[in-house]
Simulated assay, not measured.
Amino acid sequence: MGNINFVQKSNLFSYTATRCLRNEYYHNDCRICIDVCPKGAFHIVRNKLTLFENECVGCAGCIGSCPTEALEIESFDPNGYAASYQHHEEAPTLTCKVSTPCLGVFDVEHYTVMALRGDKSVTCDLSHCAGCVLNENGKLEESIRAKVEGANQFLETIQNPHRIETIEVKEEQADRRALFRKGFEKVKESLAEESVAHVSMTTAHHKLPDMKMPLKRILLKNSLKEIVGGMETTAFAISSPLFFNKQINFETCTNCGDCTQFCPTDALFPTSDKQGIYFSQGKCIGCGICEDICKPNAITSKEGFDLVSVAYERSEQLVHYEMVTCHECRCPYPYKGGDPICDRCTSFMAKHANMFTLARDM
């Protein structure tokens, strides 16, 4: 292994460091791919995620877990597969033995998109997961089942008739390692032609200028646009594994702008006059950077999501201030009432009051 590259490849598998949350924000501690990788191919080097190419087997089990799509495999694109799922004459069963790589290649968004766009429920064959050679520590199966459960939770919440159904009956397996190698080679061969269109879809998306939104989120929002018009209720007061909500405390926020600067998808962005902050729920991927970077802890998560706002990327103004000039330092600051003195000067005078004491008063 040499220096940390922007794009690292291991056979068909690639990791793009510039899309990784750990590179977006130095203090981010995302380690989803590290925890789910069955071979321990990901490592933290100088607080940056690094792929050890010689340890990666290209199983694709980690791909669906990455919130920013920094992980890809050339032989299969989950975005292209999910987008074209409805066009199959007969919806195929999702199985690592025939139609796909490891089902860890899909995220909650992919499963949800396939259920929303298809005319019946989606079937996943999970009968091989527990005994799979890649599932030695149980983390990969746990991750796959959590995504299926998250998709079903959302589909049930919005009262969609379709679900992600699972096949649990286990078949007798002779040599698990031989089956894995055979199955993986079969997938590469069967998808050699049609994967070109799939791969070009995600690759083209990532090449667009200033495109920060993961394609799987865009596919989900486009799928929601097709159904929200016929829904009786689009606003829900509960939490969701797909959508995240934020609130900002007016009294503690200093309008420093760090949260808008470091938000990887521009879910938080400043108002035109730079005196307030907007939030777009449809763009938020729940990375937690905004909450971590906020020094006064003014940003917190809250429950609730609205499908119309998500689908059409509507934004709400979370906070807005009137900027006034501090009477002490003459710098503009967000005014919150009382004497026109900024928090910095107020704090300074409180901590160093003895400096302003006259000799006659001592």
Score class of each variant (00 low, 15 high):
residue 118 G to K: 04
residue 140 L to G: 00
residue 304 G to E: 02
residue 317 Q to C: 15
residue 164 I to L: 07
residue 84 S to Q: 09
residue 37 C to S: 07
residue 341 I to M: 07
residue 203 T to E: 08
residue 331 C to V: 14
residue 136 E to A: 14
residue 307 L to N: 04
residue 177 R to E: 13
residue 225 K to N: 15
residue 97 K to G: 05
residue 39 K to C: 13
residue 20 C to G: 04
residue 103 L to G: 01
residue 252 T to K: 01
residue 86 Q to K: 05
residue 142 E to C: 12
residue 170 K to Q: 11
residue 292 D to N: 08
residue 280 S to Y: 03
residue 131 G to K: 12
residue 275 Q to I: 04
residue 53 E to F: 03
residue 322 E to G: 14
residue 87 H to L: 12
residue 32 I to F: 06
residue 28 N to K: 10
residue 124 C to H: 00
residue 59 C to Q: 02
residue 150 G to Q: 08
residue 141 E to T: 01
residue 236 F to H: 11
residue 99 S to N: 11
residue 54 N to L: 14
residue 165 E to W: 06
residue 65 S to E: 12
residue 108 V to I: 07
residue 158 I to E: 01
residue 214 P to A: 09
residue 141 E to C: 02
residue 225 K to W: 12
residue 26 Y to A: 15
residue 107 D to V: 01
residue 214 P to I: 03
residue 245 N to L: 11
residue 239 S to K: 14
residue 237 A to N: 09
residue 242 L to R: 00
residue 337 G to M: 06
residue 315 S to R: 05
residue 105 V to N: 00
residue 72 E to H: 10
residue 20 C to L: 02
residue 258 D to L: 15
residue 93 T to I: 15
residue 211 M to F: 03
residue 242 L to K: 00
residue 249 N to M: 07
residue 156 E to Y: 09
residue 237 A to H: 13
residue 96 C to W: 09
residue 65 S to T: 10
residue 147 K to T: 04
residue 310 V to S: 08
residue 318 L to H: 08
residue 271 T to K: 10
residue 165 E to C: 10
residue 124 C to P: 03
residue 20 C to S: 10
residue 348 F to E: 14
residue 81 Y to A: 01
residue 24 E to M: 14
residue 80 G to S: 04
residue 311 A to T: 08
residue 333 Y to K: 01
residue 75 S to L: 13
residue 193 E to S: 15
residue 144 I to Y: 03
residue 111 Y to C: 01
residue 22 R to P: 05
residue 207 K to S: 10
residue 261 Q to N: 15
residue 327 H to I: 13
residue 182 K to R: 12
residue 96 C to A: 09
residue 241 P to M: 05
residue 234 T to D: 06
residue 110 H to L: 02
residue 177 R to S: 08
residue 333 Y to E: 04
residue 344 R to F: 14
residue 69 E to D: 04
residue 66 C to H: 06
residue 245 N to F: 13
residue 276 G to C: 08
residue 59 C to V: 05
residue 206 H to R: 07
residue 123 T to F: 12
residue 203 T to Y: 07
residue 54 N to G: 15
residue 109 E to L: 00
residue 164 I to E: 05
residue 20 C to I: 06
residue 248 I to C: 05
residue 317 Q to N: 12
residue 129 C to A: 14
residue 246 K to N: 04
residue 165 E to Q: 12
residue 21 L to N: 00
residue 59 C to I: 00
residue 335 Y to I: 00
residue 125 D to E: 06
residue 36 V to S: 04
residue 146 A to H: 06
residue 195 S to P: 13
residue 301 S to W: 15
residue 165 E to R: 09
residue 332 P to R: 08
residue 329 C to H: 07
residue 150 G to K: 04
residue 233 T to P: 09
residue 10 S to W: 07
residue 27 H to S: 12
residue 148 V to L: 11
residue 266 D to E: 07
residue 119 D to N: 13
